[in-house]
């Protein structure tokens, strides 16, 4: 699991009873996990493709297969639990497979990518452990406790190998580079959250402004427009038929 924004395990513990309260909600959450895991699989596969180092390639590839399997486990569990049934037109089944790659390896480069994976896996692992405890305590009848236990165990491998890579690089005299990469990932995560909020706020502000502009400025122009230029019906013929094939026209954006 290498999601950008996995909640902390304390958070998970606090909200788990709320979020995981009905079968429909549980199925929906599991679907969400399946999508994230499948997306991680695609990112890890891309990293395996792009790296030149055979040892890294093997690790990334193995990691990708783990995530793909996690996606399938979550998907199967969601389908089992969803009271809407496995044959609800299959609609939910289609949703489950959906995955998006974030192109993290290309965007970040190797060291920052591994730092990102390490931190994300740490969070993912503790999140799944918290959920394991939550479901084990509640004896849910769906064996979700065991599912999360199994997956958390495998996430530990992802934490371990990415951590070891970072440690190796530190030891090889790249401590500064690693430190910077980890700091940047931490910063980016905080910044992304802030930017998301900022963007939502900014979008609303911009829209409000443009909406006001619309109400104040447009009525007059709308009137003129309607007088001068009604909707054109039927064929329009002979518009600059040959003129549009000149270099002068081709330079224009209008």
């Amino acid at each position: 699991m290498i999601a950008v924004a996995a909640p902390s395990s304390l958070m998970v513990r606090l909200v788990a009873p709320l979020v995981w309260r009905s079968d429909v909600k549980i199925a929906a959450k599991l679907e969400g996990f399946a999508a994230t895991e499948a997306g991680s699989a695609l990112d890890m596969l891309k990293a395996a493709e792009l790296t030149d180092d055979p040892a890294l390639r093997r690790l990334f590839f193995r990691h990708a297969l783990d995530e793909a399997r996690h996606a399938q486990l979550f998907r199967a569990a969601a389908r089992r639990i969803d009271p809407r049934g496995r044959d609800a037109g299959g609609a939910s089944e289609y949703r489950l497979i959906h995955a998006t790659r974030q192109n993290l390896f290309e965007r970040y480069g190797l060291v920052r990518f591994v730092a990102f994976v390490h931190l994300a896996e740490l969070r993912g692992e503790s999140q799944f452990r918290a959920l394991r405890d939550h479901f084990r305590a509640g004896s849910d009848g769906n064996d979700l406790g065991e599912l999360f236990a199994r997956i958390a165990r495998e996430e530990r491998f992802h934490v371990a190998y990415s951590g070891k890579l970072l440690a190796d690089w530190r030891r090889e005299g790249r401590a500064r580079e690693v430190w910077q990469a980890v700091a940047r990932v931490r910063f980016t995560r905080a910044f992304d959250a802030w930017r998301r909020i900022g963007r939502v706020f900014g979008d609303h502000a911009t829209r409000l402004l443009l909406g006001l502009l619309y109400l104040v400025l447009l009525p007059l122009f709308a009137l003129i427009q309607r007088r001068r230029d009604p909707v054109r019906n039927g064929w329009k013929r002979g518009r600059r038929g040959h003129e549009m094939n000149t270099l002068t026209d081709a330079r224009r954006q209008f």
Partner: peptide, 19 residues
């Protein structure tokens, strides 16, 4: 022009498309 023609019913679309 589309927004002008449809005034004021194009209000929902205008801010988004202009942005």
């Amino acid at each position: 022009v589309g927004h002008l023609r449809e005034f004021p019913r194009s209000l929902p679309q205008f801010p988004r498309s202009l942005a």
